[in-house]
Design a protein around this nucleic acid. Structure first.
Ligand SMILES: [Zn+2]
Ligand SMILES: [Zn+2]
Ligand SMILES: [Zn+2]
Ligand SMILES: [Zn+2]
Lengths: 140, 140
DNA sequence: AGCGAACATGAGAATCATTCTCAATCAGCG
DNA sequence: CGCTGATTGAGAATGATTCTCATGTTCGCT
């Protein structure tokens, strides 16, 4: 929904660049901090604006944490989903024609049009599984 | 993460009841208002608390809107997903062993454990598709 | 029935990510 | 170089959710 910028500024470059450099998912606030550390400080508001237009343009991926924070990451073009480690954030891009087809077919079967979907898989990656032996989860 | 209440109070009943009565997805704030209209006012904080424990207990479903609001709805027990109309909110519960298997298989293939997933399909239901003839969407 | 401790409620304050405001700055152009 | 409108950013505003804590309930116990 954000307007796409008509001018290319140092700030937009900086945001775009750092996303390409590092490859992981981070919140807008974290990217803002990372940019300051990198010596290319960009205002928080601008980080949000730029991240949004990049997302609108399909240049980066967005995903929401359970806590409601948005995470942004540079990613390959085209439609795909993610497998994310809930401990360390490690991410794997996955595509699944199988699921794509299922989504459309199911929606269509119920008379829905303009179908869109969300598919995310979260788990504990191998390295983290070792660090968190089996049932050492902190719930009941 | 919320503690499950050890006492059953009028307020908890009221929340649980109205969710069963109406069947659609609503935000905590909307349920709060609905309860007041129904003549069984319940404090907003308590609505949030109750909704959360019901969700923790798996008695109701939660889903987040693009705007980051949480919507709650009474729903059948057991794991399932939703097909939601982005215009009117009409919802269809769907289950898909096919997708469940795919999620686990994919995650496992990458060494992930404690796998969980999110799958939502949004679209425009038949009635709404008629009201919004083809490309009458309000963008660009 | 009468008490008291443990638990639940709710009004309002506090959080906190995100968005908005708008004066100062800058990119692009002639 | 000098314009001019797009862009920036510090700080205020927003808004859903959570927290605080004084007050109201519940329930076991006598
Ligand atoms: Zn991990
Ligand atoms: Zn897909
Ligand atoms: Zn509809
Ligand atoms: Zn599932």
């Amino acid at each position: 929904m954000g307007e796409k910028p008509r001018r290319l500024t140092r700030q937009q470059q900086a945001v775009s660049d750092i996303l390409d450099a590092r490859g992981d998912f981070r919140s807008a606030q974290e990217w803002h901090a990372a940019l300051k550390d990198d010596g290319s400080p960009v205002g928080l508001a601008t980080v949000y604006r730029t991240l949004q237009s990049l997302a609108d343009a399909g240049r980066i991926d967005v995903l929401r944490t359970a806590a409601g924070e948005s995470l942004y990451r540079a990613c390959s073009a085209g439609h795909h989903h993610h497998l994310v480690c809930r401990e360390c954030g490690r991410t794997v891009e996955i595509s699944a024609g199988e699921v794509e087809r299922w989504a459309v077919a199911t929606a269509t079967a119920y008379g829905f049009t303009a179908v869109d979907h969300t598919v995310e898989i979260v788990g504990c990656c191998a390295p983290c599984s070792v660090r968190t032996p089996e049932g050492a989860r902190e719930d009941a």
